[in-house]
Design a protein around this nucleic acid. Structure first.
Lengths: 336, 336
DNA sequence: TTGTAGGCGTTATCAA
DNA sequence: TTGATAACGCCTACAA
């Protein structure tokens, strides 16, 4: 039934050479041409494959990278994963993707799992993980690149977007079009990106001398349903906002659905700016104004930074890439 | 900088015992109580962790399962992953999640990657992979459970839903409410689930003696945009359907957006049945009728079946679980 | 109960 | 160029 795995020993026997020579050939060493063809023939004939486990034991390298994300149910996360993977694969690395379902214990466990699997490096979007725990991994010689969020007190490479100014810019677009009461649907308080986006919202209000009405600030959970619920709350306020800014894709989706349900006309009833997902923005009518995060750049920057560390190049450690977002204003925003 | 990993050897030295004894303790063998505490102390003190790579080399078991999916950008796929993982983790297994981006070569490569990583078993939603390739893996003694789709000619455990009758039932609901011209937005021709769902559509037409108008059958690609585009096509037909059935979540999303954009009223302009995602169905107004796939059951059944095979229990091999879907009819469907 | 010794499939050193 | 040989960290008879 189950075939026995072919090892170098078998190839050696088949060719009449020694295991050492086979190994050398496999790893690109010098071997007589005639032996090369002999070995090559044996390899295909026998169907030999290097046992990565054994190799890893010896080299302490697995040529695989761990990717640890809070969830797979979020387009931003899966987008990052995709782009990171593309670069890594090009460079001969494989990936182990983990999601910790936004659960603190799972986050810790999966991180340990990756360490146990001897990944050569880790890219993660951290949530509750402690500085100490991550530091412990780094101390083991496993480089980590943080994505999208920082971890307070940790010296670590990180790639993120300038969330504060992303939010600032979006809200500014509304302000310069005459809006003064601007509702915002933001992520959970504990999440770094949500904090930053809120700061941007507040700062731009200050810069334009507009008082912040905290009743216009709604904390969601980055899921569809909270976008749906919170938009309704905003719209139904006695003194409703004239514009609404929603700060991630899933909540934008929910908000749009709520607006449709309430037969609200965008932008005549209120202006609207959403987040991420260009594809959706084009589909919705009127075309959705959105903040576009450079997902490809984020993923690529993170992967390339890690690759650099893997080559033991520690220049500018810890380095922070703070990528810029773009605000795309379309028909969903109007002047008042 | 990078701490050197602590091994059993270190624990042995620290405790004055032999490596063999440490190993025995780790693996639950009999050790003197006093030595137990001694070892335990050493382990925490030194921060020892079993090197899974080395262990795997010896035992030929990695206690990890590969999950290979076509994409992470699809709620059905990530839902399955989540549920599979839950069961596996409970049983002491870890997972390596791979997505092959619906790419034939990548599908093959990632499968090989998992094999190289010596996973103990694999759960996959296959796409282009050949029967031979999968058979090769199985022959290596690595059990595979297919999810959602079969592979022609391959004897393999599989867990899927009764797609044919899912589609049959949904369309039947429309027929019994008087609809005769029913549009369907289906997946790519090459995909098993799409084939089956189309068969159901056709069979129910036959059973009710309704002629199938092939212009009402639109092939999409299971992405948002095709749902959006194809719904428009259907609605704009000279002889437009009175009801539309969309056969996955992403396309349902796109279709809803198109309907909103066209100011189409559901169900007075036409009736609508979508797919998956209960959460969204509740949010949309009117409440969406949908076909509900038992994602949790699918994931759990697949995981449990694999677990069974891992225990060398080959009873009823190959077995096929064909789970039933549920049609939930809400306000988006009306009688005519 | 404990320890010795051999082996899992590679890589790497050093003679030959 | 090739081939013994000794690791890598762990498991497992078998012996003590």
């Amino acid at each position: 039934m189950s075939e026995i795995a072919v090892t170098m020993k078998d190839v050696a026997r088949y060719t009449g050479l020694s295991i050492a020579t086979i190994s050398k050939y496999i790893n690109g060493g010098n071997v007589l041409d005639e032996n090369k063809v002999l070995i090559e023939k044996a390899i295909v004939e026998l169907g030999f494959k290097v046992n990565e486990i054994a190799r890893g034991l010896k080299t302490n390298k697995t040529k695989t990278i761990g990717i640890l994300m809070p969830t797979l149910e979020n387009m931003f996360c899966t987008g990052i994963i995709s782009n990171v993977e593309n670069i890594l694969i090009q460079n001969g690395y494989s990936t182990i993707i983990c999601d910790y379902k936004e659960d603190a214990k799972l986050e810790k466990d999966k991180l340990d799992f990756l360490v146990n699997k001897m990944v050569d490096g880790i890219i993660t979007m951290p949530h509750c993980i402690s500085q100490e725990h991550l530091q412990g991994v780094i101390n083991k010689g496993i480089p980590i690149v943080l994505v999208d969020r920082i971890v307070k007190g940790l010296e670590c490479d990180v790639v993120l977007v300038d969330n504060l100014n992303a939010s600032y810019d979006a809200v500014e677009q509304l302000i310069t079009r005459g809006h003064r009461r601007i509702g915002i649907i933001i992520g959970p308080e504990a999440v770094y990106t949500a904090e930053e986006r809120l700061k941007g919202y507040i700062r731009v209000h200050e810069d334009y001398n507009i008082e912040v009405d905290t009743s216009l600030i709604k904390n969601g959970d980055y899921q569809i349903e909270s976008g749906y619920t919170l938009l309704k709350e905003l719209v139904r306020m006695k003194d409703a906002p004239t514009a609404i800014f929603v700060t991630n894709y899933e909540m934008t989706l929910g908000a749009i659905m709520a607006a449709n349900e309430l037969n609200i006309n965008i932008p005549s009833d209120f202006s609207f700016i959403g987040f991420d997902n260009l594809q959706m923005a084009k589909i919705v009518k009127p075309p959705l104004s959105i903040v576009i995060q450079p997902m490809q750049q984020i993923g690529e920057a993170a992967a390339n930074l890690l690759l650099k560390r893997l080559k033991m190049d520690m220049a500018n450690f810890p380095s922070m890439f703070r990528l810029k977002t773009e605000v795309s204003i379309k028909g969903s925003v109007r002047e008042i």
